[in-house]
Design a protein around this nucleic acid. Structure first.
Lengths: 219, 219
DNA sequence: AATTGTGAACCTCTTCACAGCT
DNA sequence: AGCTGTGAAGAGGTTCACAATT
């Protein structure tokens, strides 16, 4: 789950698309990739629903915000639908990531091959630790956090990944926003304040595991 | 965000508590810890709301499902509220985790100190790779995945963490459910099928980053 | 006959607004 | 006077049900 404090705003597709819808589109996309690999040609909303634990009406409604991709009576063409959803999700282009904070979590993210496989590439590493600055990771030099503004502006950064200690997170966020970053993936366990045109997604594993703890404590 | 296919069911607090409410309770708890460290004695719903990007009515409504913790005109006692929320979230007890799959993600999770700090302890490691079985990590022996049932039953496992490749995830889930596990933290990018009395929380970083990609692609 | 696309109904979650305490 | 606790109203998201299409 994710909190994000940007306002509802009009976009390419009229009114704001629900967060839950976007998340499901990603899941459908994953299912379509799987079906494509096993050379399935068409798929119904019923089948997509079954594989993702939702209703078929939900699947069709999710698609309907973006257009009409199926053929009545026949279903959806797997290849075509995958391509359409990929375009909607922006997966038809490469995205440049800046990693802010090359500690424990930062290193794990650099090793997390699924980002690379999905067109998300780290192209800038920043840290404030003098013992790290100047060192190389995967052929990339760790840059000084103090130069964030210049490095981000030069580096064509699309998405900034915040993996610094919680005390530094808001300060880093302000600097990123000042440098023009519009998308932030936040691993610090804190709610970040950003202007309405900046989107934040939060990854907080402790909150997720506490949810399980909550459920167990009820029983 | 997390999909989970268990039914609404009655619990200690009557009707099902919304997932979003549980997530916010974790965030309030974190805020209260912070306030406690800086020796703040009382806090208002307004202040908790401000620090978590929600409305004060939301904060009070969230609490109201569990009881009345504040004093009208005065606010909430930080220490007492933290203790109450901790109990609701099950953070007053230790939880035993089984890690299934000691690969890249698995290792990162073992190194993720925040779990230990929050009373979540790995006590069982399982893998199917013969070169890993029998090796020790942090003094713990990696056990054979084939013996999952016996190991889980002996090990007092509260929560199973699934960090195996996507192809193996459902099979592992079925085995865990068979062994009596009621709470699963799933890192495989797939929707798991479980009976109604088992809760699954999904951590899927690719879906989160694709959400950012979606937003950028709209602009 | 099968399956999509979608307005309307339904359900859930959030916010409002104010009575009730301190 | 200040702030909580909560029923009622409002907003948002999901499911129903059926006309439209292949």
């Amino acid at each position: 789950m994710s909190i994000n404090n940007h306002e509802r705003s009009s976009s390419r597709y009229g009114s704001k698309i629900a967060d839950a819808t976007v998340g499901r589109l990603s899941r459908y996309y994953r299912t379509l990739k799987h079906l494509e690999r096993q050379e399935t040609e068409t798929v119904s909303s019923e089948e997509l629903a079954r594989r993702n634990n939702v209703t078929s009406a939900q699947v069709r409604k999710d698609f309907s915000f973006f257009g009409a991709f199926g053929r009545r009576g026949l279903g959806y063409n797997v290849k075509a639908l995958k391509q359409q959803l990929g375009k909607i999700l922006g997966l038809d282009q490469e995205w440049h990531l800046a990693l802010v904070g090359v500690g424990n979590i930062g290193h794990a993210l650099l090793n997390f091959s699924q980002f690379q496989e999905h067109n998300f590439h780290f192209t800038l590493l920043l840290d404030s630790d003098p013992s790290k600055i100047g060192s190389k990771i995967d052929g990339m030099e760790v840059k000084n956090l103090d130069n964030l503004d210049a490095e981000v502006k030069n580096g064509h950064v699309d998405i900034a990944v915040i993996a610094v200690p919680v005390e530094a997170a808001q300060k880093v966020t302000d600097a990123l926003v000042g440098a023009g970053v519009k998308a932030i993936f936040n691993f610090a366990p804190i709610s970040l304040f950003v202007p309405p045109d900046v989107t934040v997604r939060n990854e907080n594993m402790v909150i997720e595991i506490e949810h399980l703890s909550f459920v167990l404590a009820q029983q």
